[in-house]
Amino acid sequence: MQNIALFDLDHTLLPIDSDYEWGQFLCRIGAIDTDKFGRRNAEFFAQYQAGTLDPVEYLEFALGTLAQFSRQQLNDYHAQFMQEVINPALLPAAFDLLKQHQEQNDLIAIITATNRFVTQPIAQALGVEHLLAAEPHFDEQGNLTGKLRGVPTSGPGKVTHLHAWLAQQGKQLSDFTKSYFYSDSQNDIPLLSIVTHPIATNPNQLLLAHAQANGWPTLQLFAQQH
């Protein structure tokens, strides 16, 4: 029987938050109003860390920022973002962890609350084919409208998306001998609680406390590298 290995992205496979850094990048290159966006982005980030974030409100804020640009302009910005911000944050420890599961022929997926536009190229750079992410809505010309399609991939939404993705393949989580999920955040406790092998990875204090109380293993992935 095959195993399944699921990975959060931000602060788990990456030592940074790609969503937050994307906003900071747009401010830095002068693409958006630094004061207005930066202040709002920081507020949302603090809410996320505290576990009080309204995911739909945040995603439509983030996607609304993207909607003001053409798709070609966004693609150009993202290529620069990958080069300047993401590539330096792709560390050997993340590739080594993924390789362990790849060599075991596990089914591997990244499941992230960050939207697909930001994260698809990152998943590709990490060598992960399957990505479950918040889905932006596009118009007929392929431009982002600023709206979210479906439910967010955060908190219990990750469980919803995982079950739907597996069902498309005629599978369910219980079909796998072992199921792993690596995450840094207490926001992911709903999904961590239903896999056979939850691993609190670079955990924040709230997740660390929960992991210790429940006997879950912890992993400091970047302790020697960042």
Rank of each mutant, 00 (worst) to 15 (best):
L74F: 05
I86P: 01
P136L: 08
A94M: 03
Q68H: 12
Q49L: 12
A31F: 08
Q120E: 13
K99D: 15
E140I: 11
A93I: 04
A79E: 13
N143F: 06
Q47C: 08
T34V: 03
N87H: 11
I16S: 01
Q24H: 12
G64M: 05
N143G: 11
W22M: 11
E60N: 10
V118S: 00
S70D: 12
N87V: 11
F95E: 08
G142N: 06
Q124V: 03
A50P: 00
I29N: 11
S18F: 00
D10E: 09
A123G: 09
N143W: 04
N75P: 00
A89W: 05
K99H: 12
F81W: 04
A5K: 10
N41M: 11
R28Q: 14
Q141C: 09
L59K: 02
E84H: 10
L91Y: 02
D139M: 04
F45P: 00
C27S: 13
L14A: 02
K36W: 05
L107W: 07
Q68I: 13
D139A: 07
I4T: 04
F25T: 05
T145K: 08
G146R: 08
Y77C: 13
V85D: 06
I110E: 00
F81K: 04
N3S: 15
I4A: 09
T52H: 10
E129T: 13
E129M: 07
R116Y: 08
N105F: 01
T114A: 14
N3D: 15
L66D: 08
L90M: 08
I4K: 02
P121S: 14
T65V: 15
D17W: 01
E84W: 05
P55M: 11
N3W: 03
A31D: 11
L107V: 11
T34I: 01
V85Q: 14
Y77Q: 11
L26M: 15
Q104M: 10
A89M: 11
G127H: 04
T145R: 06
L53T: 07
A109H: 01
E57W: 04
T65P: 01
I111R: 01
P88I: 06
T145W: 07
N105D: 14
D54I: 08
T112F: 05
L6W: 08
L66W: 06
L13D: 00
P88C: 06
I29V: 15
A93V: 03
Y58P: 00
W22T: 01
Y77V: 12
L14K: 01
